[in-house]
Computed example of a mutant assay.
Amino acid sequence: MKNLIFTALALFTVTFAFSQYDAKALETLEAMSKKYKAIPAFEANITSTMTNETEGIKEEFKGKITVKGDKFRLALEDQEIINNGVTVWTYLPAAKEVNIDNYDPGSDEINPSKIYEAYKKGFKYIYLTDKTENGVLCEEIDLIPEKRDAQYFKIKMMIGKKDKNIQSWTMFDKSGNKYKYTINKFTPNAAITDAFFTFDAKKYPGIEVIDLR
């Protein structure tokens, strides 16, 4: 009986250590991060999918994300989010309103301009397997937050095995929702000015400005 207990404890220790630090996952994540950090600015056409199997929900949107350093602009069919590293604008065309708030880099919210660095702070990482997605052989890696009360309990990253490009990432929340972002077209070294990452309400007559700062 005592030997069984020791064996179980040993297996638990090995499993726990593995979940804390996975060298193979880290190698891939570091190579991926290095690649994206070397690109001054990029654009990507994406597909955003929200599913909840329990509720029978599946919503899909096409969009575009533009990233330059800490700045990003995410344009979806129903909203546009613009972040210049200091201020965040959320524009809702159907409602003719824009919400303005301060950007909090310390929040648990996943910043799409920093998805390639998410693993560096507050996450464990686990390499799962090689899997083909949309015709691309990828390395499947799970990021598990160290905080139990984190907004998402898991982020699944699919990273191209050959080129280390992000093929997709999926965020899982505790209510059963899955938010998947798939890269359809990637354009590196895009010529983008800093002015692109601000929202000028004067260009939208009749818009309601809701300042939450």
Rank of each mutant, 00 (worst) to 15 (best):
M1K: 01
I5A: 15
F6T: 11
F6E: 08
A10F: 15
V14C: 03
F18C: 05
F18T: 07
A31M: 10
M32A: 10
K34D: 08
K34Y: 02
P40S: 01
A44H: 05
N45Q: 14
I46E: 03
T47R: 12
T51V: 05
G56I: 02
G56D: 02
K58N: 12
E60C: 05
G63E: 07
I65N: 03
T66C: 03
V67Q: 03
G69M: 03
R73D: 00
R73Y: 02
L74S: 01
Q79C: 02
Q79S: 08
N83P: 01
T90S: 15
T90K: 07
L92W: 04
A94T: 04
E97S: 09
I100Y: 03
D101L: 05
G106A: 11
D108M: 09
I110M: 08
I110R: 05
K114D: 13
E117C: 06
Y119K: 02
Y119E: 00
K124W: 10
D130G: 13
D130N: 15
E133D: 09
N134G: 00
G135R: 09
V136Y: 00
I141Q: 08
D142Q: 11
K147W: 04
Q151M: 15
K161C: 03
K162Q: 12
I166K: 12
I166S: 02
I166W: 07
M171N: 08
M171D: 01
K178V: 06
K180N: 02
T182A: 11
T182V: 15
N184F: 00
N184L: 13
T187D: 13
P188H: 06
A190F: 05
T193G: 11
F197E: 00
A201W: 01
K203Q: 14
Y204C: 00
Y204A: 00
I207A: 07
D211N: 14
